[in-house]
Amino acid sequence: MARANASRFRFNPPGWFLLLPAVLFLIAFFVLPLVDDGLRSIRADDGSLTLARYVAILSDRFYLGVIVETVALSSAVTVICVLIGYPVAYHLVRRAGCWSALIVFLLIAPLLTSIIMRTFGWQVLFARRGLINTLLVQDLGLLEQPLRILNTPGLAIAALVHVLVPFMVLSIAAVLQGIDQRLEEGAQVLGASRWRTFVEITLPLSLDGIGTGAILVFMIANGSFVTLALLGGGFQTLPLFIFQQFNTTRDFGMASTMSTVLLVIAMACLYLQLRLVRRQGI
C-alpha cells in the first residue's frame, strides 16, 4: 500500500506548496487591483506621474473635509458603541447567568440580517406617519407636528451603532470573561464600594477588550456605505464620495485617490489591531 502510493506520487512537493493556491489567488485578485488603484491615483490624464490629486486633497477644504468627516463620524460611533456596549457586556458576563445564551443569540441575530432590512425597518419606524410619530402626535398628544427624523444625522448614527455595537459587546465580553473574579471580591472584602471596585479593578483590566472592539468598530465604520447611502443624514464620507465620483462625476482618478486614502486608514487600523493582539498574547 505504502509502496504503491510512493511510486504513484513521484513528485513530492514541500509543505508550503499548500499555501500557493490561496496566496497566488489573493495576489492576483486582491493585491494587484489595489496596487492598480494606487497607480491610477498618481497617473495624470496624459499618462505622466503626478501627485496633484494628493496635493488637492490636502489643500482643498472640501476633500479634506470628507476625510475629516469620515474619521470624526467613525470616532463618534465608536465612542457611543463603547458607552452602550460596555454595560451590556458586563451584564452578559457577570449577571445574566442562565440568560446569557439568549443574550448571545440576540446579539448574533442582527448580524445575520441584511443592511437593507434594517434600513427599511428604520424608515418604517421613523417615517413622517410612522409608528413613532403616530405615537407622539396622535396617541400621546405630546407633539403638535410630527418630528422629522428620517435623513437626520442622529438616525444615521443610530443605524450605524445598531450595525456595529454587537462587535463591541462581544469583544468586551471576551476579555471580561477572562478577569479573575477573586480580584474584584478581594477589593470588596477590603472595603471598596462596588463602584470603586469597578473603576479601579474591572475597568482597567478590561481596557484591552475596549481597545480591540474600538479598532474593529472604527475600521468597519470607516468603510460602511449602505447605511449612509440609504439613510442619508447629510454625511459626506469616503465611501459615499468614492461611489459618487464613480457613479455621477465619473472622475475615476479622484475616486482612486480617495479609495487609496481609505485603504491606508484601514491598514493603519489593521496594524494597531495586530499590535494589540500580539500584546495580549492570543
Binding site: D36, D37, C269
Partner: peptide
C-alpha cells in the same frame, strides 16, 4: 505573516475591493 495576509481582505473596506477590482478585472 502569511496568515495575516490571507485574513487581510476582512480589514479592507468592501467598497475599495469592489471599485479597484472593477477596473483591474
Amino acid at each position: 505573516g502569511v496568515t495575516t495576509f490571507l485574513l487581510s481582505p476582512l480589514s479592507v473596506p468592501m467598497i475599495v475591493i469592489g471599485f479597484s477590482s472593477l477596473f483591474f478585472l
